[in-house]
Design a protein around this nucleic acid. Structure first.
Lengths: 223, 223
DNA sequence: ATACTCTTTTTGACTAATCAAAAACCACCT
DNA sequence: AGGTGGTTTTTGATTAGTCAAAAAGAGTAT
């Protein structure tokens, strides 16, 4: 039974691999950064993950999940995201605050309880942030989405996923009614100014910078 | 922030103190036994709990919770029991299987979420086994109960609490409809034979031994 | 009080996870 | 080739929690 530390490393490695689909491996510096540990710790953990065959690791070559490691990472991610759904749907917690809570519960919940929750929720396919939930077999299916920065001016889009779990950012998104599921119109997308203006229904339009817009994934004008 | 290991020790010490109200302290042998560790480990943990002022400890003198230690123990117990309620009431898990699950979730849940659950459940005062739930301030209130072994023959009793969390025993109780809340009549209480026969409604009567009956707490014929 | 038994403590060792700081290595740029 | 800057690895230490086995202490029976 892998410790929750190991589970966290694998989850982060998976997320880093997803975040930078170009890079084949995750560097020690990167890993140490996202895990909040020193590079030396990342190295020794990389070795021990490799010993357990969760990652491929070559000295100076970074880490890369093996099939076995990815399976476990997806299992944790599934737990995390189902728990988020549950906290929001069943207990009415705010979607901006469930991430932290799920972060600890994901290591403590049994498979049995998780399945019960999955059933209770009606087998959801995405969590409250729009992140896809791996199924019990570890398969993950996500519709092709584009960052808001790519949207044409005048386009009608549907917010599908928010890529940042930071509470402040989520509250900003919430305040302007840009939660996943919302339809909105892109009024301005000024690439030179790196600013974008978007409007939901009859609400006042919001203008945000490029980096903020890049964290909001949308479905195009029509598929 | 105490580790979950420390939380578990304090919880067990509290429960042992309750289980043997006569003994003023919990011995190392006892503690090692219930925690499933060697006596040496119990000793070194006792010292470290004493350093943190959770228990009073004198060499060869056993441990005894301080006010501080009891407060923390009751906090864990509150978590444990509210979680059990929640799993049964909100997710329909069987009361015989929630103990183990709560055992790990109790260390992972935040105070905020726990309060939300408490509210969701309508501030229950006992868990599915009839164990009293400490309130947010750590106060615990339990009606005076008597073990079934003390019941008079012919008495009508109300099952109030089951003192054993073992899955098999709980399933036995369940099978014979002796869950907390049930009214039943004591048909035979033969102290010499150490056997007791009890009947719920029109169901077939059940006969059990003294030790089993001692784990079932009831409210008297009338208060 | 003496011996015997049971409990408790001590000692030494081990694993997992971490840090700080030194050393080694890699890649790139003249 | 040689140096330089940044990354990675190594080394040595630390903390929490554990065990096995030896040593010490307490209590009881004769």
């Amino acid at each position: 039974m892998p410790s929750s530390t190991v589970e966290n490393y694998l989850k982060r490695i998976y997320l880093e691999e997803q975040a930078a689909p170009g890079a084949a491996v995750v560097s020690m510096k990167n890993l140490a950064g996202v895990m909040g540990v020193t590079p030396g710790t990342a190295t020794s953990m990389a070795k021990s993950l490799a010993d357990s065959r969760f990652v491929a690791y070559e000295p100076y070559g970074g880490v890369k999940l093996t099939a076995r490691g990815r399976t476990l990472a997806l299992r944790i991610l599934r737990r995390h995201r189902l728990i988020e759904c549950f906290l929001v749907d069943a207990l009415g917690l705010d979607w901006s605050e469930v991430h932290e809570e799920a972060e600890s519960l994901e290591h403590a919940i049994s498979d049995k309880l998780l399945d019960r929750i999955d059933e209770f929720l009606g087998f959801p396919s995405v969590d409250p942030h729009g992140d896809p939930i791996p199924n019990a077999k570890g398969a993950i299916r996500q519709a092709a989405l584009t960052p808001l920065t790519e949207a044409e001016e005048g386009a009608e889009v549907r917010v599908a996923r928010i890529l940042d779990q930071d509470e402040d950012f989520l509250r900003f998104v919430d305040r302007h009614h840009l939660r996943p599921g919302t339809r909105a119109r892109v009024l301005v997308n000024d690439r030179a100014a790196e600013a974008l203006t978007i409007q939901t229904g009859k609400l006042p339009a919001v203008t945000m910078g490029r980096t903020a817009a890049a964290k909001i994934m949308v479905e195009g004008p029509r598929p």
